Each structure stands twice: as C-alpha cells, then as structure tokens.
Simulated assay, not measured.
Amino acid sequence: MSIVLGPNQYGKAETRVVRVVRDGARHELRDLNVSVALAGDLAGTHLTGDNTAVLPTDTQKNTVYAFAKRYGIGEPEEFGLRLARHFVASQPSIGRARVSIEQYAWRRLGPHSFQRDGGETRTCAVTVDSDGEWVVSGLTDLVLLNSTDSEFWGYAKDEYTTLPETKDRVLATAVSARWLHASSTMDWAASYDGVRAALVAAFVETYSLSLQQTLYAMGRRVLEERPEIAEVRLALPNKHHLLVDLSPFGLDNPNEVFVAADRPYGLIEGSVLRAGASPVDGAF
C-alpha cells in the first residue's frame, strides 16, 4: 500500500490586533481578528522534520502587528492583501497565502471614546497565489426580522410531519454572507456598505413564501446593484418564533406573543452568481 502526503497548510490563527490612530484629538480605532494560512513546498517538515521552509507561526503573528504599525490597517481587505502578498513574495517555499479577517465595530462616543457595537461582524478572506488574487468580503450575525409578509405552506408531508401550514408568520434570521469581488482593487468601504444595504433592502421588500426565496432575492439584489460582485453565498438560519398557547389563561393570541427558540433551527444555504459563471470554490 502506497501512502503519500495530501494537501496541507499551516499558519497563525486568531491574532487579535487593535490599532489606534492618534492624529490629533480625534482618534480612530480598528479592531481585527486575523488568521493566516500558508501552503506550498512543505513536504519536508511533514515527512522528515526538516523545517527549512517553515516560517514560524509566531513570525506570522509578529508580521500582523508590525504591518498594523508600519502601514496602518485601513479597510480589512487592504490589510489582508498586504499581508498575503508579503508572505508569498518573501518566502520562496510558499505558493499560496490566505488571510481571513474579522473586523469588530465600535461606535464613537466622543473624540477618543468608543462603545463596542452589538451589530454584525464584518469579514474578509484574501487568497494570493501564483494564479492570481481573490478577495471575498462578508458579514456574520446580521440579525433581521419581518413581523409579517411571510408564509410557509404547500410543503411535502409524511407520517412524521406535525408543522402546521401558515399564511402569516414571523421571519427572522441571522445572516452570514460572503461575496467574491471581480477585482482585487476597488473602494472596499463603499462596496461593503452597498452590498450590506442591498441585502437588507431585499429582506425588507420581499414577500416571502419560503426562506429559500428570500435567500435568492437577497443574492440577486446584490448582483443587480453591485457590478463589482461576481458571486454571493448566503447562510440563513431560520430563527423560529413559535406562537405561545395562551388559551389556558383565557386569552387569545392573534400572532402577538411568541417564544424565540434558539435551537434546533432550520439552516438555509445557497449561492447566487451571474449566468454562465462557474463557482470559485477555492476563493471561499
């Protein structure tokens, strides 16, 4: 039996870096969680313990800190591209660098005072190799709710089905979305704001007969309004709101009082891309 080494990578996960820009009395704040994964000619360290081609993960962590100071952070996509390009260009053994970033938002309270924002988390994943550069931006935990204009009926049923059909329900989800840019050069902040606005608008304006229909409407809206986006991938957990039976207390409940169930939950996932395009799995 022949045994060989398969695909592999290594890196430093979840380096937390906070950068304060002190230009005068009004400060700016960037708060990131950065993960690096490197791949290339690394068979030696696996097969014989030869570490000649291995850039220590501690060095990768230090590079994140040094780049935050030397170049600033700016938009997370810019920072990720700068790091990924550096690792590929500076290490002969490394053929691919992937940098994944979560950016945590802070709300300004004063010139140098901030409050951690409880909203969604902005994300990006940057991949650089000999074939090109790919930038996938995204967000997680964008919590949205429609209190009506949502139905669910006409579905398949079997002997285990107990869910009643409904023509009026609460539709709630915590959106996780990732979108592939057609280029690695653009106004990242404007693009992020535009995509987020399109996702929210589609959720608000879609009369939903299923969460799957809402997912497609959200992805379609992004591609219609943002020509710089090539593909959108969405994961929408169905945050079930179950009507409480108040009849034991002599009370009616015409879709007014619910219990928010955190688990189990339906999970709807899908991608929306331009006609004729092929999914770019490696970028995601």
Results as ranks from 00 to 15, higher is better:
Ala283Gly: 10
Ser278Glu: 12
Asp117Thr: 08
Ala25Trp: 10
Glu256Trp: 11
Arg16Asp: 15
Ser130His: 11
His241Lys: 02
Asp149Pro: 08
Thr173Val: 06
Thr214Tyr: 01
Asp245Trp: 07
Asn33Ser: 13
Asn8Cys: 07
Leu246Gln: 05
Thr121Glu: 08
Trp134Phe: 11
Ala13Pro: 11
Ala125Pro: 06
Gly110Trp: 09
Leu29Met: 01
Ser271Lys: 05
Pro248Ala: 09
Glu14Asn: 07
Thr166Ser: 15
Thr148Gln: 12
Phe203Thr: 03
Gly40Ala: 04
Tyr265Val: 05
Tyr265Gln: 12
Asp245Gly: 11
Leu83Ser: 04
Gly80Ala: 14
His112Asn: 14
Phe87Arg: 11
Arg116Pro: 13
Ala190Trp: 10
Ala217Pro: 03
Gly276Lys: 11
Gly40Lys: 03
Pro7Ala: 02
Pro254Gly: 05
Asn62Thr: 07
His181Lys: 10
Ser183Gln: 08
Ala13His: 10
Tyr104Ala: 03
Asp31Arg: 01
Thr173Trp: 01
Leu180Asp: 02
Val4Leu: 14
Ser130Met: 11
Gly276Leu: 12
His181Phe: 05
Thr140Asn: 12
Lys157Asn: 08
Pro92Met: 05
Gly276Ile: 00
Arg85Trp: 13
Gly49Tyr: 10
Leu38Ile: 14
Leu234Val: 00
Gly24Leu: 12
Leu251Met: 08
Thr52Ala: 13
Ala66Trp: 15
Glu102Ile: 08
Tyr65Arg: 09
Trp134Asp: 06
Asp262Phe: 13
Asn51Cys: 11
Asp168Leu: 12
Ala217Lys: 05
Ala189Asn: 15
Leu243Gly: 02
Leu209Cys: 15
Ala13Trp: 14
Ser210Thr: 01
Gln212Ile: 08
Thr57Ala: 13
Glu224Tyr: 09
Val136Asn: 09
Ser35Val: 08
Gly40Asp: 07
Ala66Pro: 15
Ser208Arg: 08
Leu234Ile: 00
His86Met: 07
Leu223Ser: 00
Glu78Gln: 15
Pro7Ser: 09
Ala13Asn: 09
Asp23Met: 13
Tyr155Val: 05
Ala37Asp: 10
Val272Tyr: 05
Gln212Tyr: 05
Glu151Thr: 11
Glu228Phe: 02
Asp31Lys: 01
Arg98Lys: 03
Arg82Asp: 03
Gly40Phe: 04
Arg98Asn: 03
Asp117Ala: 04
Leu199Ala: 05
Ile229Ser: 00
Ala230Asn: 01
Tyr65Ile: 12
Thr173Lys: 04
Val232Pro: 00
Met1Asp: 03
Asn51Trp: 06
Val222Trp: 00
Tyr71Thr: 04
Ala230Ser: 06
Ser176Gln: 11
Leu81Gly: 12
Leu242Pro: 14
His112Gln: 12
Leu109Met: 15
Phe203Val: 06
Tyr10Arg: 03
Thr185Gln: 14
Tyr155Lys: 14
Leu215His: 01
Asp131Met: 11
Ser184Thr: 04
Gly154Ala: 15
Arg233Pro: 00
Asp149Gln: 01
Leu145Asp: 06
Arg226Tyr: 02
Ser191Tyr: 09
Trp134Ile: 14
Leu209Asn: 09
Thr140His: 13
Thr148Glu: 14
Met218His: 09
Ala275Tyr: 07
Thr123Lys: 12
Lys61Asp: 11
Arg233Phe: 00
Gly24Ala: 15
Pro56Phe: 06
Trp179Glu: 10
Gly270Ser: 03
Leu109Lys: 14
Ile268Asp: 00
Ala105Thr: 10
Phe87Pro: 06
Arg26Met: 12
Ala202Pro: 08
Ser2Asp: 13
